[in-house]
């Protein structure tokens, strides 16, 4: 079943300089999809459009066949969660306070969170392996720890579908792999659908079901990881003749030759 669908999306921040051009895509329920591409090619914008926090200039995003804007905002937030690339740290909130904001779509505007909300929040922190940070202030955390707290906040929304924008950019090698394992586990236990913008091409095969490659705001290639992550296709996506993709011990490894 197709869960999330985009039809001919166009978007620009500045008139005359399109960021997303005529993008159509379909994401199956319970699948894991990676969006890849070079810096500034429109990946983050596409994810924001899919999350419904930006509105396309043309085209539409459908969730279960229904246009996203016709969902009530709270309902949308109970269904689709979004993890931004960077999150603010203007005030010294504790990690738990941040994760509790993920319970907003389940709480009435003039009530505070109850113990069920708190236990869901703590469980979300445990799921991504940062329960020990619950009482720490986000201003004192490292970039990677803050990213994991942000993922936990999204999980506290108990969504069907989670969209992540480079969630692992500040994570070390262990935590990068750990995050993918966590997402895979959520897919198999809760049937969660995962869409993730990433530069970590080494972690996509095996694991992900589909890879969407973007170039200059448009979809340049899409398909199974083994189809998209090849020398020829990657050379075109990144405009880099030095890219190599090789299978080592069953895992697809991708790098660019430095010489």
């Amino acid at each position: 079943m197709i869960l999330l669908e985009a039809k001919q999306l166009d978007f620009h921040y500045v008139i005359g300089r399109p960021t997303v051009i005529d993008v159509s895509l379909a994401i199956r329920a319970g699948s894991m999809t990676a969006i890849i591409g070079s810096n500034g090619c429109g990946k983050s914008t596409l994810v924001r459009l899919l999350a419904g926090i930006l509105q396309p200039a043309k085209g539409s995003v459908l969730y279960r066949g229904v246009p996203l804007p016709s969902y009530e905002r709270g309902e949308r937030a109970r269904t689709i969660a979004y993890v931004p690339q960077n999150s603010a740290r203007a005030f010294p909130f504790t990690s738990l306070e941040v994760v509790l904001t993920g319970r907003t779509p389940y709480t009435s505007p003039f009530r505070l969170e109850n113990s069920h909300d708190t236990s869901v929040a703590i469980e979300a922190l445990e799921t991504v392996g940062v329960a020990h940070l619950a009482e720490r202030r986000i201003t004192e955390l490292s970039g990677g720890e803050r990213q994991l707290v942000s993922v936990a906040r999204a999980l506290a929304q108990q969504p069907e579908c989670i969209l992540l924008d480079e969630p692992s950019s500040s994570l070390d090698l262990k935590h990068r792999a750990q995050l993918i394992r966590t997402l895979k586990a959520l897919r198999s236990t809760r049937g969660m659908t995962v869409v993730m913008v990433t530069h970590d091409l080494n972690l996509l095969d095996p694991g992900f079901d589909a890879v969407l490659a973007m170039r200059y705001g448009a979809i340049a290639a899409s398909g199974a990881p083994s189809e998209v992550l090849t020398d020829a296709s990657l050379a075109a996506i990144y405009e880099d003749p030095y890219v190599r993709a090789r299978r080592i011990d069953g895992q697809l490894c991708v790098w660019s030759e430095v010489h």
Binding site: A77, P84, A88, F93
Partner: peptide, 20 residues
């Protein structure tokens, strides 16, 4: 006040949590 609390935590997250 609640929308402001969510915005104080993070604007994009607030938007994804349903704040207009």
């Amino acid at each position: 006040a609640r929308d402001l609390h969510l915005l104080a935590v993070d604007e994009e997250s607030a938007a994804s949590l349903g704040v207009n």
